[in-house]
Simulated assay, not measured.
Amino acid sequence: MFGCVIHGRGDLRVDELPVPSPGPGQALVAVRYGGVCGSDLHYWRHGGVGDFRLREPMVLGHEVVGTVLSYGAGASGPVAGTPVAVHPATPCGVCPECVDGRANVCRDTRYLGSAARTPHVQGAFAAQVVVPAGQLRALPSGLGLTRAALAEPLSVALHAVRRAGAVAGRHVLVTGAGPIGCLVVAAVKAAGAARVTVTDLLPRALEYAVAAGADSVVRADDAAGPGWPQEVDVAIEASGVAAGLDTCLRLVRRGGVVVQLGMLPSGQSPFAGNLVVSREIELRGAFRFDVEFDEALALLAGEPRFDALISAVVPLGEAEAGFALAADRSRSCKVLLDFGTHNS
């Protein structure tokens, strides 16, 4: 079979891989679609993401959907042929964070397509993949595989909204209108936000934000332009740059909440820390997700608006072109790789 493997910075290949067999407790899935995530792009362009650096070839991908093929000994789940989404995390279940109900920050988790540990955890951008059977989720009625491929990034957005607290009836600022930022917009609207303002540097990205449900959008580099709010109740930083965090801290009301969702560059990042003190702003981090995965699938099943965020579906054989498109935010939002032709 074939898969999408990163060998180093700028070295992305479609390699022939051995066909896996499910072991005890495992399921074998025929992957149909995989969403290209910002972390996949970082591995491709920079050889790592945040503090996680590539040390060996790694199959990329953690946003995958497909159909069940078979199970290993002692494993059970949706019957063969069932369309499923794959939850990409395998927390340890015993560390203090897991015991405290915060498995998303498990100190010993395994996450598909991650270089956080060595050997790396191989990802799911392959025609077939083996995963723990408990990580399969049958798709709700009416949810097709294409839209279901948004479940993992939408889960990230839903977790950020949960970290923000009550947003119903409030004005929410989202800095950054990439795929995650746009899904945050959809998530806060679903949670009852009265108004959502989005900032970004790119006009096309702001168009996607409007498609996701933004009430107003503003150019991040046009401080004098119309649409800038004087104050917001909650701010979610989804751009992953220090300037976005600075904007959130300066616009959120006194006593408001800022959620840092975008992964900032490794090392130190400057920010207006004095505002956290003088305005008693609550600055909260948001990392990955846990139980939000099932919530994401339910939300996707009932909202066709999400389809507008899928910019393109690219065959696996053209993976590098797909990555280049996903990296060009002036042309795309979410790009999917299609593994269907490699499953026959």
Rank of each mutant, 00 (worst) to 15 (best):
V314R: 11
L143Q: 10
V36C: 05
G77T: 09
E282P: 00
L316Q: 11
L69N: 10
A177D: 04
V196T: 13
G93E: 06
A243K: 13
G123S: 14
Q26G: 10
V29I: 11
D15V: 09
V217N: 01
V29G: 12
L145A: 12
L12R: 08
L150E: 14
Y71V: 13
D51Y: 02
V232M: 00
V167P: 00
A157D: 13
D100Y: 02
S311A: 12
G48C: 02
R45Q: 10
V313Y: 00
V36F: 00
T199P: 00
R162N: 11
E318Y: 03
Q122E: 14
L183V: 14
V105F: 04
P20R: 05
H7Q: 11
M58K: 14
A326K: 06
C248L: 05
P132K: 11
V172K: 11
V259N: 10
P20N: 09
T199H: 01
A126M: 01
R305I: 06
P153F: 02
M1S: 06
A85N: 07
P57K: 14
I180H: 00
V131Y: 04
A133Y: 04
D40K: 13
D51Q: 03
R288A: 15
D200R: 11
R45I: 04
E282S: 14
H159D: 12
S114C: 09
G123A: 13
A326Y: 00
Q260C: 07
R137V: 12
A148S: 11
P179K: 13
R137D: 08
A326Q: 07
R110K: 11
E318R: 15
V313M: 03
A80W: 00
C182S: 03
G317H: 06
D233M: 03
V64A: 15
T146E: 14
R195W: 01
P22S: 12
P153C: 08
V167T: 05
D290E: 14
A214G: 10
L264H: 08
E97K: 03
G101Q: 02
H342P: 00
V5Q: 13
V161E: 05
A166F: 00
E282H: 09
G113H: 05
E320A: 04
S332T: 11
V291I: 07
G48P: 00
A308Y: 09
S114I: 09
